[in-house]
Amino acid sequence: MAGAKETGGITGTKDRDYDLMWYTETCLSNALRLETYIHDAERAQDKEAVDLFRKAQADSRKGAEMGKELLRSRLHS
């Protein structure tokens, strides 16, 4: 939000770090949720949906790994 004050005073975590943690957690949650979607599509024998959800899950895992790596580098410094 433009012009908003940083909430680090409230949460104890700088906005940039909080946002990165949120992003990483969201990617991990998506990977878990997509596992259910994959199983649903497999039961329906919908190969196109299975392929789509598997790709999306791989992308979510990649995003989570990138987020974790950046968090590691920032929180250990």
Score class of each variant (00 low, 15 high):
4 A>T: 06
4 A>R: 10
5 K>H: 09
5 K>P: 02
6 E>L: 02
6 E>H: 02
6 E>M: 07
7 T>I: 10
7 T>G: 09
8 G>S: 00
8 G>N: 01
9 G>P: 08
9 G>E: 00
9 G>Y: 01
10 I>K: 01
10 I>A: 00
10 I>W: 00
10 I>L: 02
10 I>Y: 00
10 I>V: 03
11 T>S: 12
11 T>D: 05
11 T>G: 07
12 G>E: 09
12 G>L: 05
13 T>G: 03
13 T>N: 05
13 T>M: 11
13 T>D: 02
14 K>P: 02
15 D>Q: 15
15 D>G: 04
15 D>S: 15
16 R>D: 13
16 R>W: 01
16 R>H: 12
17 D>C: 05
17 D>N: 04
18 Y>H: 09
18 Y>G: 06
18 Y>M: 12
19 D>I: 11
19 D>C: 06
19 D>P: 00
20 L>G: 04
20 L>T: 04
20 L>F: 05
20 L>A: 12
20 L>I: 00
21 M>E: 13
21 M>S: 14
21 M>K: 10
22 W>G: 09
22 W>K: 15
22 W>S: 13
23 Y>L: 14
24 T>L: 12
24 T>Q: 13
24 T>V: 01
25 E>S: 15
25 E>N: 10
25 E>H: 12
26 T>M: 14
26 T>P: 04
26 T>C: 12
27 C>E: 14
27 C>R: 13
27 C>Y: 13
27 C>W: 04
27 C>I: 07
27 C>T: 06
28 L>A: 13
28 L>Q: 12
28 L>I: 15
28 L>D: 13
28 L>P: 04
29 S>E: 12
30 N>T: 03
30 N>G: 04
31 A>T: 11
31 A>P: 05
32 L>D: 14
32 L>P: 01
32 L>A: 13
33 R>P: 00
